[in-house]
């Protein structure tokens, strides 16, 4: 830990490969994410964007290569352990507990009482409710804490899931198409939210909406057939002839 220098990355994927039934979804991928960076991964359908997130959070096991988080190998850990290391993942479709209230959704994500008996004897104290209130405000849901999550609008459900991740205070937040299905005003609010929360963490986003990508990205990685086609700031990537050819052109 003490020898960490500025040249070290928070997240380092090296030579990462995985194939499904012979199809190489991710092919010798090298990807490095800095502290406090917002990185957006774009690319045509089937480029392996979601698979990259799946590999990092432990949902899918890699065939070869390494995933290091703060120089620690995490590719062999199971999902909850990776979460405890400080990596949070939001799914493409809102994954929230529809039968529970917004408050309870956030409470279950609060990083305490994670084992069975911890959950059984969990006490809802002021520390918990203060933190929940704070996060609810940051994801625009402070007036809906009592509401059953199923009754939220689509955009609010997406925010709730982001809130559920924020409560865990992850060092790396991975979002899979966070603005899909959102209205324009919701999209703007989400961009503002992401820009606000990235002050203390890195964010890795998979997104199709180019306007939204422009709003938030520090750096863009273009994936194509499981490999990196281009990487750099938005302007560089947008003017790259290969990118225009396979992705932006149509």
């Amino acid at each position: 830990m003490s020898i960490r220098t500025n040249t070290d990355y928070m997240l380092a994927l090296t030579d990462l490969s995985v194939s499904f039934d012979g199809f190489k979804a991710v092919d010798d991928l090298n990807l490095f994410v800095d502290e406090n960076e917002i990185r957006v991964i774009i690319g045509p359908n089937g480029a392996g964007k979601t698979t990259v997130l799946d590999l990092i959070c432990g949902k899918t096991r890699s065939d070869s290569g390494s995933i290091k988080f703060w120089n620690e190998e995490i590719s062999h850990l199971n999902e909850p352990r990776i979460v405890h290391k400080g990596i949070g993942r939001k799914f493409q479709t809102p994954s929230i507990y529809e039968d529970l209230s917004v408050f309870e959704n956030l409470e279950l994500s609060y990083p305490r009482g994670h084992d069975v008996f911890g959950a059984l004897f969990f006490k809802r104290d002021s520390e918990v409710s203060d933190r929940l209130q704070e996060v609810a405000e940051s994801v625009f849901l402070e007036d809906h804490l009592d509401k059953q999550a199923a009754l939220l609008s689509h955009g609010q459900k997406q925010w709730l899931e982001i809130g559920m991740l924020l409560i865990q205070n992850p060092k790396l937040l991975m979002l899979d198409e966070p603005v899909a299905g959102m209205s324009i005003s919701e999209r703007e609010k989400t961009a503002e939210l992401l820009n606000r929360i990235t002050r203390e963490r890195s964010v890795l986003v998979v997104e199709h909406d180019m306007k939204f990508v422009e709003d938030i990205a520090h750096k863009v990685t273009v994936l194509h057939q499981g490999r990196i086609l281009a990487e750099g700031d938005m302007d560089t990537v947008q003017n790259n002839p290969d990118v225009i050819e396979v992705y932006l052109g149509h």
Partner: peptide, 26 residues
């Protein structure tokens, strides 16, 4: 208890519970 709400959560969104740091099997 929170465990009760956690059970409902496991029933409805098992993956979300797992990716919130819980060992669902336990």
């Amino acid at each position: 208890s929170k465990l009760g709400r956690l059970l409902v959560a496991v029933r409805d969104q098992e993956d979300r519970v797992r990716f919130s740091g819980y060992e669902v099997a336990n």
